[in-house]
Amino acid sequence: MKNTNVKKGWNRDEIAQKVALDIPDGAYVNLGIGMPELVADFIPKGREVIYHTENGLLGMGPVPEQGQEDPELINAGKKNVTSIKGACYFHHADSFTMIRGKHIDICVLGVLQVAENGDLANWSTGQKGAVPSVGGAMDLVAGVKTILVITKHTTKDGQPKIVKNCTYPLTGKSVVKRIYSDLAILDVTEKGLFVRELAPGIDFDYLQKQTGAKLHEYELE
């Protein structure tokens, strides 16, 4: 039996907060659907961050109050949003010029699998008969300057999501720069995965057991 009294790992909000701390003032940021959306709630006060949503809005604001929803003002997840003062709308070719032309600074995405070399799989499990849907995922990983991913360290049945090689179809090759999980923050480097920070109650050996690729420790200066 696991000891549930001792705090182990980070919850969803805490992971999102860790990502938010790494987003600098003035950044143009695209947040993927799901857990990445939480990041916007934790940007430290005093930092001005502009959110891009690829359906055609720069300067996306928070969810509207009930009754104020506009079906023609939505985000990439097709949820109702608002626009901030100073926002702008544009068509899809311009929106993806921002992405594919490397004008967006940071993109935070969810994960099916991420490999030690930064390969990302997050659009399809390759299951036969399933309807494949890709949206803007491949454009984002190919074009945004820095790709951060946010994920549970393992699947619901305990399989590692951070692996040596992705078995699911790739979204992009060697694209992920940093991984934020409930157990740790990992840097993707040319020499492999380096542990940047361990979550409370997690030690290196435990983390290694939960990971499908070899982990490295930074040498202390």
């Binding site: 899809h92 929106s95 992405i99 594919r100 949206g135 995922a137 491949m138 454009d139 190919a142």
Partner: peptide, 24 residues
């Protein structure tokens, strides 16, 4: 891919038969 779709349409409208992209 969504951006490739937008760009393929843009190219079609602009008389550009094909283009190269890193997406996919």
């Amino acid at each position: 891919p969504q951006g490739t779709l937008a760009e393929r349409i843009r190219a079609g409208g602009a008389g550009i038969p094909a283009f190269y992209t890193p997406t996919s």
